[in-house]
Nucleic acid binder design. Structure first.
Length: 117
DNA sequence: ACGCTGACTATTA
DNA sequence: CTAATAGCCAGCG
């Protein structure tokens, strides 16, 4: 994640960051946007997720939820239940489209990257 | 070129 | 407390 990050498109940066999310953890659109220097453009992160279906390697978009821990993008997967199913497969409890214990499972890219550098 | 839409968020009423 | 509003900015008709 050297300065090459700057050369890539915002979407690509989002994809790479999302791939860094550990299994069984989740993060938010806002956190990603903020980490990439666009705290006001959480919506663009959502768009990036939309693009992520065609991107290789595959992006674990199911680990990205909104600020409330809600699976706002579940309907954009192949099947509406695809996202929840994948999260549960990783040990994340999902109830009524909301990640349970979200605050504890939340993975802050900003904090992690700081610690990494 | 213009306006509407949206996998968001923060603020105000 | 909940509900509405306004920034946000890249696609699409």
């Amino acid at each position: 994640m050297p300065q090459d990050y700057m050369d890539k498109d915002f979407f690509t940066q989002v994809h790479e960051l999302v791939r860094l999310i550990p299994k069984g953890r989740v993060t938010t659109y806002g956190a990603i946007a903020k980490c990439l220097g666009m705290p006001r453009s959480a919506r663009m992160v959502g768009w990036a997720m939309n693009q992520s279906h065609d991107v290789i390697p595959l992006v674990p978009a199911h680990r990205v939820v909104n600020r409330a821990g809600m699976l706002s993008g579940k309907m954009h997967f192949g099947h509406p239940d695809e996202m929840q199913r994948r999260l549960e497969a990783e040990g994340i409890q999902v109830l009524n489209n909301c990640v349970q214990d979200f605050q504890n499972l939340f993975w802050d890219p900003w904090k992690e990257l700081e610690n990494l550098s």
